[in-house]
Design a protein around this nucleic acid. Structure first.
Lengths: 241, 241
DNA sequence: CAGCTTAGTTACACCATATAACCAAGTTGA
DNA sequence: TCAACTTGGTTATATGGTGTAACTAAGCTG
């Protein structure tokens, strides 16, 4: 049974009076998540241990099950935290490049994404690597992913501008507009959606392979490759293709 | 200390006399690898257990350490097996599309790659997902990856043909020709190398995200997206870009 | 057939998840 | 106020994993 676990960050409004006990409880949950994150950073998924966390908090073993129903439950909460962290970092990276051209914004998005993944490789692998197939991300986590996608789409929309667009209407386009409609963001044109999802998968492909040390074995640099992809997306956007 | 572990498959020549004991030993190793692979297929990396394997083989616990020095050692051997399996499947997929156009060959490569990953998602995640950062693939494993890359490069070379090529010589190109030279395959032109690595990372990006169930949450289909990327690479090859 | 090597055994140390039974303290309401 | 309930902790225990040590039986080798 998965327990409460609201996102730590935010919800500054809707402050329910928050009784004394609840405050302490929330604080402990925060500490647990922090230690868990550190474990993942240091040793990957394998190093995530409720027992070790409990010991570090000065309480012994099973006490932690008062806060998280299982290791997987904690893992889900961690996923949510990490998604938020990633998307926040990317957003800040883009905002820090403010005032420059749309192309520069896109490059900043890519650089921030890759930079974060290289800084926290275990976290990135946790999100997109390990994953047990049956494992279901909590709602807020997937919502955060969509948030990152929206940010990307806005950048690409700037890049595309409002040039005439080819009428394609293939299967991919149908899926994309269905997604946008379901999200309640009908404002993006098909070409923007198309380039957005292409860029995202390319970005992930590069970063993921780079972390797998496959690139190292080949003498390739992820940054160089990523520059190339950024260039190509910008060209495509410019050509409305 | 990592033990012997030659690739099971092949080396039909160089048959060293292979004493009776050696044959039995090799057979047991084969069985172990098979069970390990099944464990991974069923429950992912977490389900890989020396103890369980031993029990299934009728021997008890520590006996397995006569065959593999540690769980990580077995994991390395498994990596090699899986790479071979993947590359073999892709090669067969391409060969089965023989006699058709270069574009169709490339599409077959992509379809075989993705098809294999979807058929054996846990194996794919094991190769490119889990990975402990310090974990080093055995030599034969990386060699097999390069083999798959070579196959791809040959297909793209057909696609490009021998049209005039732009003289770019940027950082990416330098890395690529250095890799090709180191591999002793100087036959590929820079544009082929460039499109090859781009296609590979894009392919991996799509497949990887598809397995992460992120696509499911967005209502996207990996096959559709992959078709789009195949089309774009073919266009780029046709334009020598 | 003596001696070495191989492949197995049991016993153990240690760590992990997770449940059960219990208990102390805080919270709440009649 | 104080009885009842809730919360957060405890210890004990079942189960299963990695990995080492010490030992033994059987096969191979000279």
């Amino acid at each position: 049974m998965t327990q409460e676990h609201d996102p730590i960050i935010l919800r500054p409004m809707t402050v329910p009076p928050l009784s004394r006990r609840e405050r302490i409880h929330a604080e402990t949950v925060r500490e647990i998540r922090g230690i868990a994150l550190r474990q993942v950073d240091e040793g990957g998924l394998a190093a995530l241990s409720l027992n070790a966390i409990a010991k570090e908090l000065g309480m012994s073993g099973p006490a932690l099950y008062r806060y998280f129903a299982s290791r997987d439950d904690l893992l889900g909460a961690l996923h949510a935290d990490i998604y938020v962290h990633l998307v926040t970092a990317v957003r800040e990276g883009v905002e820090a490049s403010t005032g420059r051209t749309p192309a520069a914004h896109l490059a900043a998005y890519a650089a921030a994404y890759r930079g974060w993944a290289r800084q926290y490789p275990r976290r990135y692998l946790l999100l997109f690597g390990g994953r047990a197939e049956d494992f279901k991300d909590p709602e807020e986590a997937v919502s955060e992913v969509h948030e990152g996608m929206l940010l990307l789409l806005r950048l690409i929309a700037q890049l595309v501008g409002d040039r005439p667009q080819p009428k394609a209407s293939d299967a991919l386009e149908r899926q994309l507009v269905a997604w946008a409609r379901r999200r309640g963001d009908p404002g993006f044109s098909p070409i923007v959606l198309r380039l957005g999802v292409l860029f995202w998968t390319r970005l992930h492909g590069i970063v993921s392979l780079e972390l797998s040390s496959v690139f190292k074995d080949m003498g390739l640099d992820g940054g160089t490759l990523l520059d190339e992809e950024v260039k190509r997306i910008i060209e495509a956007a410019g050509a409305g293709r």
